[in-house]
Simulated scan of single mutants.
Amino acid sequence: MKKILTIFVISLVLLLAAYFAFVYYVPYSEGTRSGELIKVSNKGVVFKTWEGEISQGISGAEIFKFSVLDKDKDVIQKLNELQGNYVKVTYIERYTTLAFWGDTKYFVTAVDKDISPHFNKKSD
């Protein structure tokens, strides 16, 4: 009986480790998005996570919500500095998220200031 319980516990631990490794290391998609950075916040009671929003439409009807992992300190700093500006973010989308990573499946890995297409049109 003790041997069966030991095998069960080891199997359960290995399955959980494989699940976490899959969710963390295997992205569903990768890409970039541009828009006006309208929100960056560090929120949560038990797990503090970094969350943000980018407005991708003129009226703000299309919002891209994203999370940033705590280990990406330079990305968090740049997001705080660029709030209110037009930015281009590079992100990975995961199959799912965990409470201590963030609220969304989209995780920003890089951010750069960009030129807004709405305010940079030259008139002839």
Results as ranks from 00 to 15, higher is better:
residue 38 I to A: 01
residue 92 I to T: 09
residue 45 V to N: 13
residue 91 Y to A: 01
residue 59 S to C: 14
residue 36 E to P: 06
residue 85 N to Q: 12
residue 59 S to R: 08
residue 64 F to R: 03
residue 66 F to K: 01
residue 36 E to R: 04
residue 64 F to A: 03
residue 77 Q to E: 15
residue 41 S to V: 04
residue 66 F to M: 03
residue 79 L to S: 05
residue 90 T to E: 10
residue 80 N to I: 12
residue 45 V to I: 14
residue 90 T to L: 08
residue 44 G to P: 07
residue 102 G to C: 06
residue 90 T to P: 05
residue 55 S to H: 08
residue 33 R to M: 14
residue 97 T to I: 04
residue 52 G to A: 05
residue 34 S to H: 03
residue 79 L to R: 03
residue 97 T to D: 00
residue 98 L to D: 11
residue 57 G to F: 05
residue 95 Y to S: 10
residue 41 S to A: 10
residue 51 E to H: 12
residue 68 V to D: 00
residue 85 N to R: 06
residue 78 K to I: 12
residue 88 K to M: 11
residue 86 Y to I: 08
residue 89 V to N: 02
residue 31 G to R: 07
residue 104 T to R: 01
residue 45 V to E: 15
residue 100 F to L: 09
residue 88 K to W: 02
residue 105 K to P: 04
residue 61 A to L: 15
residue 50 W to T: 11
residue 58 I to C: 14
residue 89 V to D: 07
residue 75 V to E: 06
residue 34 S to A: 11
residue 81 E to S: 13
residue 46 V to F: 15
residue 53 E to S: 11
residue 46 V to I: 13
residue 91 Y to E: 02
residue 60 G to N: 02
residue 50 W to P: 12
residue 41 S to N: 12
residue 73 K to I: 13
residue 86 Y to A: 05
residue 73 K to R: 13
residue 61 A to M: 08
residue 96 T to H: 15
residue 30 E to N: 10
residue 78 K to A: 04
residue 39 K to Y: 07
residue 94 R to C: 08
residue 101 W to A: 02
residue 74 D to S: 14
residue 101 W to K: 09
residue 67 S to I: 02
residue 84 G to D: 01
residue 97 T to N: 00
residue 70 D to Y: 15
residue 35 G to D: 03
residue 80 N to C: 10
residue 62 E to T: 10
residue 72 D to T: 05
residue 77 Q to P: 11
residue 100 F to V: 14
residue 71 K to N: 09
residue 85 N to E: 15
residue 44 G to V: 03
residue 45 V to S: 11
residue 63 I to C: 00
residue 51 E to W: 13
residue 37 L to M: 02
residue 84 G to K: 00
residue 51 E to Y: 08
residue 95 Y to K: 13
residue 75 V to W: 03
residue 33 R to T: 02
residue 84 G to T: 09
residue 54 I to G: 03
residue 47 F to E: 15
residue 78 K to N: 07
residue 68 V to Y: 01
residue 73 K to V: 11
residue 91 Y to F: 08
residue 104 T to I: 03
residue 69 L to W: 06
residue 101 W to Q: 04
residue 36 E to T: 13
residue 87 V to A: 05
residue 32 T to Q: 12
residue 47 F to K: 03
residue 69 L to P: 07
residue 43 K to R: 14
residue 83 Q to T: 12
residue 59 S to A: 07
residue 70 D to I: 14
residue 94 R to E: 04
residue 35 G to M: 00
residue 91 Y to M: 05
residue 34 S to I: 01
residue 76 I to W: 06
residue 76 I to Y: 02
residue 88 K to V: 05
residue 33 R to D: 12
residue 44 G to E: 10
residue 102 G to D: 04
residue 91 Y to C: 12
